[in-house]
Design a protein around this nucleic acid. Structure first.
Length: 302
DNA sequence: AGAGATATACATATGGACGG
DNA sequence: CCGTCCATATGTATATCTCT
């Protein structure tokens, strides 16, 4: 039952959709998404930034609904592209193939026609969010995260997971925590500190202490996340455009992580907003890479 | 009529609380 | 410590409404 949708309908433009998808990716890069669950800070940030940009404040359910519909569209994209090779794509990630190819797809699945007539825009961002492969999560974490969120991040890509283990610096725990048990993914992993050797006070007393510590931890965690976001967003060298630029840089498959070109590109993009804007202005990956090679003097093959 | 946006119901996953 | 319960959030399917 739609409750009076007429007065409350959000008409999403491709631009607005892209904006919120980028915001969600940024929050993931900042480590504010845990097991696909957006932290309250992330939701607030997305809603606030959308309000700042478009002057409209939506309740979170609107964004959630939009993400749902995006995932539906992405699912259709996957259905069209699954196990197919030689596919061409538009810069926004939508399918760029011949009419013959589309006719074949429509024969297999009549539902494909609407995606031929109206390509799924922003499919590139949808892939990053919904594919379950966090191409740059480890780096995003290591650069910006001060907590142990990575342990909980969903990393379905084995390579990415092993890379994360190899490249992550030792976690600087905000709250002292005992070492994780060997079964780190067990059904019961409590954040409540478990004193191992101290004499046991009463259950009630322990519960009170644990509750106090947890409240304090949660409060400090929220404060830290909020403060961290504020710093990230206000600091000129860590502006959102840099996050976007880094996200795009990580998506360039021709540039190996930590290769000379990657390092030089990272430095170049960090230096100035105009560098990032110029980089992002190129619509296709090849021109982005050529731009970085020109600006840095490094080759992708080095 | 069909597409898009939204609400709702149900299933599922996760993590904390609680009691034995 | 462990099993169970509960709260919360997501995913999916479906229905309704508006607009083109």
């Amino acid at each position: 039952m739609a409750s009076d949708p007429g007065s409350d309908t959000v008409l999403w433009s491709d631009e607005q959709t892209r904006f919120v998808l980028q915001l969600r990716i940024e929050e993931e890069l900042k480590g504010n998404v845990k097991n696909k669950v957006l932290h309250e800070t992330a939701r607030k940030t997305i809603a606030d930034k959308f309000y700042d940009t478009y002057g409209v404040r939506h309740p979170w359910i609107k964004f959630r609904n939009k993400f749902n519909s995006c995932k539906k569209q992405y699912g259709a994209m996957k259905r069209l592209t699954h196990n197919r090779t030689g596919l061409g794509y538009h810069p926004d990630g939508s399918i760029d193939m011949s009419d013959d190819w589309w006719e074949q797809r429509c024969k297999e699945w009549p539902g494909a026609r609407k995606y031929k007539d109206k390509p799924v825009a922003n499919a590139d961002l949808m892939k990053q969010i919904f594919s379950g492969v966090h191409e740059s999560g480890a780096e995003g974490w290591s650069a910006q995260q001060g907590e142990n969120e990575l342990d909980n991040m969903e990393v379905e890509n084995d390579d990415a997971a092993s890379e994360a283990r190899q490249t992550n610096p030792p976690a600087r725990h905000t709250n002292p925590e005992p070492d994780a048990p060997s079964s780190s993914n067990g059904p019961r992993v409590s954040n409540a500190p478990r004193a191992s050797t101290v004499p046991k006070p009463s259950r009630k007393r322990r519960a009170e202490q644990a509750a106090y510590v947890m409240r304090s931890s949660l409060q400090s965690r929220d404060d830290i996340l909020s403060h961290k976001n504020h710093l990230i967003e206000s600091h000129p060298d860590l502006s959102c455009s840099q996050l976007k630029a880094m996200s795009v840089l990580h998506s360039l498959s021709s540039i190996r992580m930590w290769s000379p070109l990657y390092k030089a590109a990272y430095k170049h993009l960090r230096e100035a907003a105009t560098n990032r804007q110029t980089f992002l202005s190129y619509e296709d990956d090849e021109n982005k890479i050529i731009y970085l090679e020109e600006e840095t003097g490094e080759s992708r093959y080095a």
